[in-house]
Computed example of a mutant assay.
Amino acid sequence: MKKLHLFIQIIIGVSIIAFILNKLNLNEIFEVLKKTDLSYFIMACLSYLFLDLILALRLSYLLKKIGHEMKLKDVFLSHMGGMIIGDITPGRSGYFLTPLILRKKSGVPITEGMACIFAPQGIEFILKVAGAVAAIIYLSFYLNIEKNFIIYAGIGSVILLVVGILMLLVSWNNEKMTSKFLVRIPFLNKFTENLSSFKDRSILIKDSLNIILILYTMGWIFAALQWYFLGKAIGIEISFFIFFLLHPLITILMFVPLSPAGLGLMEGGIILVFSFFGISPALGMAFSVLVRVSILVVDIIGLKTVISVSGRTQSEEW
């Protein structure tokens, strides 16, 4: 059944991409991509790599906070393993397999690894919504955009905000209430039997909110730099500040569990939002292709870790 769901979601993503490409001139897209400035593309990849390093640093700090001393290299590779899985799973949900990788690499209990990821991810969703709202306000004041876009973007932001708040409630609220909520959610319901351990560790990192916020802001800057350099690579003249606002607004679509990592949805969002700045659909599509490629070029670092852990799991079952 899970394989069928994934297959359907892949079909949905590919169908959306096919629909978009059918409306565009493929030759124009290829011409833009052929003229990509490689030096700017490399700078974009490096910016994204620094984002991954910051996220791994956050994970390493929180693991130490709950009593797990791990080499930063091992935490980074575990994080990258989760990222590469997230790149090909609906709503980037594959990143929540990172605790399994941590357990295989260093013996960190899954519930404790999840505690270091779950609440910070909820905080990240809330901050992403804040950035998206700032972008919507900016676009509304300075550009002539459709009311429907504001409505749909607002609805998406509210949904992600609710998800973020629920994740924090699960991590930091009454255990009885949390277990009733968790048991209804696929994948997460398996953690109800270890809920006490999960919540104990989650509460230990609650006073690290300032560190989480600082590291998230630093990561947001590097994420915006990645997009800024990709824009430069194909001649898109948008300021760093605009990319800083647009990044959370558009990447919200990557968390919609309709297709793998928002495939097709993010591309359509980029084309639409870029059109407000007078950027052609072909240029917008080329930019979205470079975003996907730059992410995969960096996240592929985690592939060896995923294969290694997968092989180890199979040998243990054998």
Rank of each mutant, 00 (worst) to 15 (best):
L4A: 14
H5L: 12
L6W: 13
I8R: 08
Q9S: 08
Q9A: 10
I17C: 14
K23S: 14
K23I: 13
K23R: 15
I29F: 08
I29S: 10
V32G: 05
K34G: 06
K35V: 07
T36A: 09
D37Y: 10
I42Q: 05
C45T: 13
C45E: 07
L49I: 12
F50L: 15
I54F: 14
S60W: 15
I66S: 04
G67I: 09
H68N: 14
K71Y: 10
L72C: 00
V75N: 00
F76I: 04
R92Q: 13
S93L: 05
Y95P: 00
Y95T: 08
P99T: 03
L102C: 01
L102A: 06
K105H: 01
S106D: 15
G107A: 05
P109C: 02
I110A: 07
I110S: 03
T111F: 04
E112M: 02
G113L: 07
G113Q: 01
A119C: 09
Q121D: 04
I126Q: 09
L127E: 04
A132R: 07
A134C: 05
I136Q: 03
I137H: 02
L139S: 05
Y142S: 01
I151M: 05
I155S: 05
V162C: 07
V162L: 15
G164M: 08
L169M: 12
N173I: 03
N174F: 01
K176W: 00
K180D: 00
F181I: 09
F181S: 00
F187Y: 11
F187G: 00
F191C: 06
L195K: 01
L195A: 03
S196I: 12
S202N: 10
I211G: 00
I211V: 15
T217P: 00
M218G: 14
I221H: 02
A224Y: 02
Q226A: 06
Q226K: 11
Y228H: 11
I234F: 06
I236S: 04
I238V: 13
P248Q: 11
P248A: 04
P248Y: 09
F255H: 11
P257S: 08
P257H: 07
L258E: 03
L258P: 00
S259G: 10
G262P: 06
L265T: 11
G269E: 04
I270H: 06
S275W: 04
S275E: 07
F277N: 04
F277D: 02
P281D: 06
A282Y: 12
S288K: 08
S288I: 11
S288E: 11
V289E: 06
V291H: 00
R292I: 06
R292K: 13
R292N: 09
S294W: 05
I295V: 06
I300L: 11
K304A: 15
T305C: 02
V306I: 14
S310P: 02
S315H: 12
W318Y: 13
